[in-house]
């Protein structure tokens, strides 16, 4: 078996027929990868292991294709958010508004905390608080979480939920444009996403008016 393989490899360099074979082989490989990718997009809850496997060769394969085949100018694949695959089991995504509430709670005790020189605060704390506050469109993180949690039934992941809240998206069109991974679930998600975004907008306007009052 291995001898045969070696032979094939050698002749591939010489004869055009085997070249064709080679390229054909490649084509099949890409097709299968595309199929995998589609599969991944539609089955958002597929097991993490296979998703992770698909993700890497897919990106690599596309790059290779772009370099070699000048004729096929395919656009690079959209950047899909796969937070869940990268996260360890003990970690969970938080929306900016949730983080802002927690960090602000600590900041409110800072006068007391800074009196005690033995208590150390991480150097990233201030800038993280600042970031959480700028990307915070809502005063009531609990209601935001409740509203968006309903989308979980439609396979919307935790990462996507947080991104929706963090970007303050108002329309489904904007949501699908900014979060390409949602597009794969478009037909399933569209209606409930629309309802959720309308709800979120109501929570948002309350926030804006309170800011004005402040």
């Amino acid at each position: 078996m291995s001898d045969k393989g070696g032979k094939g490899g050698k002749s591939a360099l010489k004869s055009p027929a085997s070249k064709g074979k080679d390229s054909k082989g490649r084509k099949v490989q890409f097709d299968s990868e595309d199929m995998f990718d589609e599969k991944f997009e539609t089955n958002g809850n597929g097991n993490g292991k296979s998703n992770g496997k698909d993700g890497t060769p897919f990106a690599k394969g596309k790059g290779g294709k772009g370099d070699k085949g000048g004729s096929s100018k395919k656009e690079p694949p959209p950047l899909l958010l796969k937070v869940e695959e990268e996260l360890p089991e003990n970690a969970k995504c938080l929306m900016n508004c949730e983080a802002a509430q927690i960090l602000q709670g600590i900041q409110d005790h800072m006068v007391l905390l800074s009196k005690d020189p033995t208590i150390k605060i991480p150097s990233s704390f201030d800038r993280a608080l600042q970031y959480a506050n700028t990307g915070n469109f809502y005063t009531n993180p609990h209601s935001v979480r409740q509203t968006l949690e309903t989308l979980k039934k439609q396979d919307v992941s935790d990462g996507e939920i947080c991104l929706i809240a963090n970007t303050g998206i108002e329309s489904t069109k904007k949501a699908f444009a900014l979060i390409p991974s949602l597009k794969a679930k478009k037909s399933k998600v569209k209606e409930s996403l629309g309802t959720a975004l309308t709800e979120l907008n109501k929570l948002k306007t309350v926030t804006e008016s309170t800011i004005v009052l402040d």
Binding site: A99, A128, N166, P180
Partner: peptide
């Protein structure tokens, strides 16, 4: 605890 990390595909400001 709370931590902060950016992920590929994430929209940030």
């Amino acid at each position: 605890c709370l931590s902060f990390k950016v992920f590929r595909g994430e929209i940030i400001e």
